Computed example of a mutant assay.
Amino acid sequence: MEFQKDDLIEAKRQIDSILHKLEETIKTFESKENVERYKSQITLAKRRVKAFEIANYLIENEMNNKN
């Protein structure tokens, strides 16, 4: 599948925004008094961060190949 460079730039921008929000969410949950109560939410957010980091890496590689 072919993607335009503008589409890749926008996708990366959106992913960066989501990553920032997820990282803030993790900080919030980890600062809660009873952190064990939020363990599953923290795990889910961390897994999503990892998935978006992989997506960002792949987008960056694709953008570099377009140059």
Rank of each mutant, 00 (worst) to 15 (best):
E33G: 00
L44W: 05
L22D: 05
N61G: 08
E10F: 06
K12C: 09
N67P: 01
I15G: 02
I18W: 05
E2G: 14
K50G: 03
K50P: 00
K39S: 10
D7Y: 02
Y38R: 04
R13L: 08
S40P: 00
V35W: 00
Q4P: 00
A55R: 13
A55H: 09
D7L: 06
I18Y: 09
E60R: 12
E60C: 03
E53G: 05
I15W: 02
K12N: 12
F29L: 14
D6E: 15
K5I: 13
S40T: 02
R47Q: 14
N61K: 11
L22I: 12
I42T: 04
N65F: 06
R47H: 10
A51L: 11
I59P: 03
M1K: 10
F3C: 04
K50C: 02
I18C: 07
N56G: 12
E53L: 12
E33A: 07
F52D: 09
M1V: 10
S17E: 13
I59C: 08
K32E: 09
D16V: 03
R48M: 14
K21T: 10
V49G: 04
S17T: 14
M1I: 09
F3H: 12
R13V: 01
V35F: 01
L8S: 05
D6R: 10
D7W: 03
E33W: 02
M1P: 07
I54W: 02
N64R: 13
N61L: 11
R48W: 06
T25H: 07
E60V: 06
Q4S: 12
N61C: 04
K12D: 13
D6Y: 07
N67S: 09
K50S: 11
I9T: 08
A55P: 01
N61A: 05
Q4K: 15
K32M: 10
S31F: 00
K27N: 12
R48A: 11
E2V: 13
T25Q: 15
I9S: 02
Y57Q: 13
E62F: 04
E62N: 12
K46P: 03
N65Y: 06
N34P: 00
L22G: 04
L8Y: 03
R47K: 14
A11G: 00
E60P: 01
F3E: 08
K32Q: 13
L8F: 05
E30W: 01
F52I: 06
K66W: 02
S40L: 03
I15R: 10
K27L: 11
K32T: 04
E2L: 14
E2H: 13
E10Y: 05
T43P: 00
L44S: 14
K5L: 14
E10T: 09
N64T: 05
S31C: 03
V35N: 02
H20P: 00
R37K: 13
Y38K: 04
L44E: 15
F52W: 08
L44V: 10
A51P: 00
R37G: 00
Y38L: 06
E62D: 11
D6I: 07
Y38V: 03
Q41N: 10
K27P: 01
